[in-house]
C-alpha cells in the first residue's frame, strides 16, 4: 500500500519533471528538471525490484550522461535562452497533435486489454543478473563494448582541436597532448 502511494508520487514527479524539462527555455534548467525526473525513475526501478538498474540509472544517466550535457552547454556557452532559439508556440502544435494521438491510441490499446494477472515474483539476486548477463548474453556485452570503443574513437576524432594556424609563435600553440579541449 505504501509502495503504491510512493509509486504514484514518483510517477507524478517524473511526469512533471519531464514536462517542465521540455518546456523550459533554459537548457541548464531543463537538464536539472530532467535529472529530478531521472531520480524518481531510479526509485521506481528500485521499487520494481531492479536495484542494479536503479543504481546504474543514477550513476550513468544522472551522473555521467546528463553531466556531459551540462559540460557541453557550459563549454560552448549555450545557456542563454535569449540567444538560443526556443520553439515558437506554433511549432508546438504538430508536436502536441501527433503526441496526443499516439498517447490516446496507446492508452486505448492498453486499457482495452484484459488486466494481466499481477503475480509477485521474487526479486532476482544480483548474482543471477550478472550470470545471465555474462554467460548468456556474453556476445551482446562484447558488441556493446565494441560500440563503446568506436564511440570513444569517434568522439576523440571529432573533439580534436583543429590544427592551429602556423603564424602563431610556437610557444603559444603548444597544447597539452591528448586533450581535445583546452580549458
Amino acid at each position: 500500500m505504501i509502495e503504491q502511494t510512493i509509486f504514484y508520487i514518483l510517477a507524478a514527479v517524473a511526469l512533471a519533471g519531464t514536462l517542465l524539462a521540455i518546456t523550459e527555455k533554459h537548457p541548464v534548467h531543463a537538464i536539472m528538471y530532467l535529472v529530478t525526473s531521472l531520480f524518481s525513475m531510479a526509485v521506481i526501478f528500485y521499487l520494481l525490484m531492479a536495484p542494479l538498474v536503479a543504481v546504474f540509472e543514477v550513476i550513468l544517466y544522472a551522473g555521467a550522461i546528463m553531466v556531459l550535457f551540462l559540460f557541453v552547454i557550459m563549454m560552448l556557452d549555450l545557456g542563454h535562452p535569449e540567444k538560443g532559439i526556443s520553439p515558437h508556440w506554433k511549432e508546438w502544435l504538430p508536436a502536441l497533435l501527433l503526441s496526443g494521438i499516439s498517447i490516446t491510441s496507446l492508452a486505448a490499446i492498453i486499457v482495452s486489454r484484459h488486466a494481466t494477472v499481477s503475480v509477485c515474483p521474487a526479486a532476482q539476486p544480483i548474482r543471477e543478473v550478472a550470470r545471465r548477463l555474462f554467460q548468456e548474453h556474453g556476445m551482446a556485452v562484447e558488441l556493446v563494448s565494441l560500440q563503446l570503443l568506436f564511440a570513444l574513437v569517434g568522439a576523440l576524432y571529432l573533439g580534436k582541436a583543429p590544427s592551429p594556424p602556423t603564424t602563431l609563435p610556437e610557444k603559444e600553440v603548444v597544447k597539452s597532448p591528448g586533450e581535445g579541449v583546452t580549458l
Binding site: 510517477a11 511526469l15 519531464t18 520494481l48 504538430p94 498517447i103 496507446l106 492498453i110
Partner: peptide, 26 residues
C-alpha cells in the same frame, strides 16, 4: 508488482510521447 503492469505501461507511454513531442518542437 506494486501496481498493475498497465499503469506502468501508461506512464512509460506518456513519458515516451512527451519526449517525442519535445523532439518535434525543439
Amino acid at each position: 508488482m506494486i501496481v498493475p503492469l498497465e499503469q506502468i505501461l501508461i506512464l512509460a507511454g506518456l513519458l515516451f510521447f512527451i519526449g517525442m513531442g519535445g523532439l518535434l518542437a525543439w
